[in-house]
């Protein structure tokens, strides 16, 4: 199955089981993980990656989500502060990591799938990097995310 656009991408993500979504979301975040040096983010992504093997409990996910959320809150750019777009990229990586490990009960309440949410935040992280580098608005993440999803669907 080939993914050509976000409409198909979103629909295919939503159709996945939650553990599969977590594992795929972890792959999305890993592509931008270098933009965050926060160990809480790393822990969350590693846990999400293991989700597809059924070895992760809801309690572990809740703890990881709480820690990653703290990383997200701590990395907000506050009103009036000079923007460091590289640091801001780290904020969106943390936000993507939170999506990866969002507990199932909470994920069920959201209108968007957690994998879609993680994908969007990972793209934002890359967007912030392009702003920091002044390299225009081209963002390769969407195409790379399509490929990762295709690989999963075709496996």
């Amino acid at each position: 199955m080939a993914i050509q656009n976000d409409r198909d991408f979103k629909a295919a993500l939503t159709a996945l089981e939650v553990p599969q979504q977590r594992a795929l979301a972890a792959q999305f975040v890993r592509r931008v993980q270098g933009l965050s040096g926060d160990p809480r983010v790393l822990t969350a992504v590693e846990l999400a990656a293991r989700a597809a093997f059924g070895t992760v409990t809801e309690a572990e996910l809740a703890l990881a989500a709480q820690a990653a959320n703290t990383a997200r809150v701590e990395s907000f750019t506050q009103c009036g502060k000079e923007t460091d777009w590289t640091a801001q990229a780290g904020h969106f990586v943390a936000k993507a990591a939170v999506a990866c490990v969002r507990p199932a009960a909470e994920a069920a309440k959201n209108t968007e799938s957690l994998a879609w949410d993680a994908a969007m935040q990972a793209r934002m992280a890359r967007t912030c990097q392009t702003v920091a580098e002044g390299s225009g608005t081209d963002n390769p993440e969407a195409i790379e995310q399509y490929r990762l999803l295709e690989a999963l669907l075709n496996s």
């Binding site: 750019t77 009103c79 009036g80 502060k81 000079e82 923007t83 777009w85 702003v131 002044g134 225009g136 608005t137």
Partner: peptide, 8 residues
Amino acid sequence: PMGVKLPA
């Protein structure tokens, strides 16, 4: 105030 420019 936060240094946001049009390219961003």
